[in-house]
Design a protein around this nucleic acid. Sequence first.
DNA 1: GTCTTACTGATAATCATTGTCAAAACGAGG
DNA 2: CCTCGTTTTGACAATGATTATCAGTAAGAC
Lengths: 139, 139
Amino acid sequence: MTPSPAPQQRMTKQRAAVLEALEASTEFRSAQAWHDRLRHDGSTVGLATVYRALQALAESGDVDAVVTDSGETLYRRCEAGEEHHHHLRCRLCGRAEDIDMPEFERWADRIASQHGYSRIDHTVELTGVCEACAAEGRG
Amino acid sequence: MTPSPAPQQRMTKQRAAVLEALEASTEFRSAQAWHDRLRHDGSTVGLATVYRALQALAESGDVDAVVTDSGETLYRRCEAGEEHHHHLRCRLCGRAEDIDMPEFERWADRIASQHGYSRIDHTVELTGVCEACAAEGRG
DNA sequence: GTCTTACTGATAATCATTGTCAAAACGAGG
DNA sequence: CCTCGTTTTGACAATGATTATCAGTAAGAC
């Protein structure tokens, strides 16, 4: 099989706008929320395009994605080059802190193989209410 | 405020059927999958009813619910009276093992308060491929 | 049995997300 | 700068899981 050439990515103004929006905030937001923000900022980018851009970025590891209990997917920019990590996220405003769990991967692999499971993946997310939101009595 | 009387729950044959189906398996399945199974077993229960029953059971802690990456909610019976726990789930067949992380809650609370977060909740799920599925070369 | 009220089921509605496809825009090569 | 082959876009339709609606049904207390 001929090795198919890496599909090229074009830097369009829409993708640039999405990246810029992501860079301007450290909060987790849904695709629709990012789209709203872009429109409010004057962009005319389409909703589907925002979905596609976020999806592509998540796949390439440039943004973090989490799925909420209600099934919505939230995105935020990922600190470049960082290893796999987890989050402590405010469920009211979307703010998030990066959390380290150095021993978790090893622990997970060990538990999994003890039970005969392979190809392990894991999800660890902490949610709470951040100091600012608590102070304002939200929620 | 007059304490509103606890809303009474009626044991209908539909709920009994859902409970029976849950009892007969230890696997995580979607509401639609449980509905299919019930219909194949001769029940005429409606889809909405299955959703309502599973939802109510999840709320009361009688069944475990997890949200997949694609946003689907999966349910399975919960070992009665068990404390909060986590799962190692086969992403192909839905089989799952209960996992203990005795120190995790404490760890999570500590991390959270270090960052000023309160009202902490957490999600920890391991997914993989179980021995049987791996042997059959699925996936 | 009677009666109140919760429950059911068929179906419509919702909501996030994905597919479709013609028109627009990258960007490599003249 | 111009042309051309591809990729991308955006408006909108379509999907798929879940929820709401609502008239009819059936627990279960008396």
